[in-house]
Write a protein that binds this DNA or RNA. Structure first.
Lengths: 228, 228
DNA sequence: TCTTTGCAAAATATCTACATTTTTAAAAAA
DNA sequence: TTTTTTAAAAATGTAGATATTTTGCAAAGA
């Protein structure tokens, strides 16, 4: 009964490649040489091309016919466009969630906010980054889930995938700064309060602010690294 | 200079498969047998798996590990969710477009509205459907483009891909009915007028109405065909 | 009799290795 | 320099090997 359902290799190749692209192991614009990938991930071309095709569909990789694959480029212009799009979409979704969310929705938000606030620097900083990010995503995910539309949430996921590489730059700066973390914690608490009060316009405004704060920081990091 | 840039086979496999799924050649839920696909599209498994991987990323196909691929199911519940999501997202985008669109935007809308209104039943009805649909999409695309956000438009494209199968059911009913076409033509004209007047709340309301009209018709078709 | 179980055969999905085509680079010629 | 030629590198496609799932059928159990 527990044969640990063997995944096909394409699926794990996809997960590993995506993770490495987001973390900058494969930087923006890098040529993804089949021979390198085969060696690095110990896979044949078949599964790799499957994984790359999916990443192309997600716009994290671009394919040039007969010339292989490349990590999608990054730019400050794109950074700004993604965050702009996210702010608007997230605003729409939160508005719907406030109109449609039920008691279970509220309870879930409280639960996720609690676990997020309790993240402590117990193990190494690398671990810390993972845990904080996971719980942070879960918290915002719980808020968005209230909109009740699978397809709006799907669109939101798409933008999340796009922003991940930029957000990773920010995470590395932020998670290790306890004052930045403390500031976020306060924002989250205020957000929960406004959500429970179902104050739509207030929440919209707060979410927007909250979402956009990383932008100047990321812009700075990108300039420092010459990624503009 | 014009070597007609050879595409890799995966790309054309993707286009053909997608088209056939949207048109119902491969109905919802159908098992996509490799041997059948190889025969039908005259391709090896490699390019086919590439194409299928992309379609999986777009949620038009679902993959079950070691058990191959299946056309994603359809349901009335999904129909309603997609249209709901679309109505909200399109509303958001149009609002932004009204705030941000310039003169070129207005001009492009007028141009596209004109070509759409001029579609005549010159050749066969099959051809007619293609042309009307293409111009209809171009018209609404021109309106949305005004929002100026590549990533919001990308999210919109994603929903369009999702809805395409349902919309195809509707198109077949509508395009051959000249009164339905005439009704649409009036809606479009009114929409253009309100857009040029930059009456955001009016446009939002109209777009929503315009977008949702197909839903009851499609629901009917689905029931008739036992796709509920 | 009807249902369940076990097994082997067939069908199917998946992967790899190699053949083919195309691009890139390097060297030679103009 | 600029162009042409040539060799190496890389991408792409196919055929066949391997592993997995499904199916058909018979025997056991209810």
């Amino acid at each position: 009964m527990e044969h640990s359902a063997r995944q096909n290799l394409g699926v794990s190749a996809y997960a590993r490649l995506k993770r490495d692209i987001i973390r900058g192991v494969h930087p923006a614009g890098e040529k993804l040489l089949m021979s390198n990938l085969r060696q690095r991930y110990d896979l044949g071309t078949g599964p790799l091309r499957e994984a790359l095709s999916q990443l192309v569909a997600e716009h994290l990789v671009v394919a040039i016919s007969q010339r292989g694959y490349r990590v999608a480029p990054m730019s400050v212009a794109e950074l700004e466009d993604i965050y702009d799009a996210r702010a608007h979409l997230e605003g729409l979704i939160v508005e719907l969630a406030i109109a449609r969310g039920d008691d279970a929705w509220e309870a879930d938000i409280l639960a996720k906010a609690h676990t997020l606030a309790k993240v402590m620097d117990v193990s190494g900083p690398e671990e810390m980054l993972d845990i904080w990010d996971r719980r942070h995503q879960a918290f915002h995910g719980a808020i968005a889930a209230g909109c009740g539309s699978r397809h709006l949430l799907q669109a939101r996921e798409g933008l999340l995938d796009q922003v991940e590489r930029y957000r990773h730059l920010w995470l590395c700066e932020t998670v290790f700064s306890s004052e930045a973390l403390e500031y976020k914690r306060q924002e989250h608490a205020a957000l929960v309060e406004a959500l429970l009060a179902r104050d739509a316009s207030e929440v919209c405004h707060m979410i927007r602010e909250h979402l956009m704060t990383p932008v100047p920081i990321i812009r700075e990091v990108m300039k420092r690294r010459g990624l503009e």
